[in-house]
């Protein structure tokens, strides 16, 4: 599979995940499935960001953007040459940093939502949004 195809497949995968997540959050009645939809949505956006870091201009694919001592020794060159070589070959590393942060935020958000769902379940003995939130709306 060529590099272009891999990138296109990743984009299609991320769009699919985002759409599945959106449908689950907006249209599925079960609260746990809504949370799963949230995670699909987050993962879809993360995959999109990772795909942005992909480089097509490096023959054979870009390397992982970690500048290690091993890389320096393998190149058998001065520090400057090794660094330039690294810059030419490494993937675009900024999106990976964003993904890491977003994973942490997603985990925290999911924990809060699950906590709220537990409280609602203890009260209503149901996980159906139409019952649980519908009752809340009626009494409100």
């Amino acid at each position: 599979m060529s590099l272009v195809n891999i990138q296109v497949a990743s984009f299609i995968g991320s769009v699919s995940l985002i759409l599945i997540g959106l449908v689950a959050i907006l249209f599925i009645d079960n609260l746990i499935k809504k949370v799963l939809g949230m995670m699909f949505l987050t993962d879809g956006v993360n995959l999109f960001l990772v795909t942005l870091g992909f480089r097509l201009d490096v023959p054979g694919g870009a390397i992982v953007p970690i500048f290690t001592e091993a890389f320096y020794k393998a190149e058998n060159a001065s520090m400057g040459v090794a660094a330039r070589e690294f810059a030419d070959k490494a993937g675009f590393c900024l999106p990976y940093a964003l993904v890491l942060t977003n994973i942490v935020i997603g985990a925290a958000t999911t924990a809060v939502v699950l906590g709220l769902i537990i409280k609602m379940y203890q009260k209503h003995k149901s996980l159906n949004a139409s019952e649980v939130l519908g009752e809340v709306i009626q009494r409100g």
């Binding site: 949230m38 409280k119 609602m120 009260k123 649980v132 939130l133 809340v136 709306i137």
Partner: peptide
């Protein structure tokens, strides 16, 4: 309040 928070979070 729990219901509103949950909807807001979703």
């Amino acid at each position: 309040a729990f219901g509103t928070s949950l909807k807001y979070m979703l």
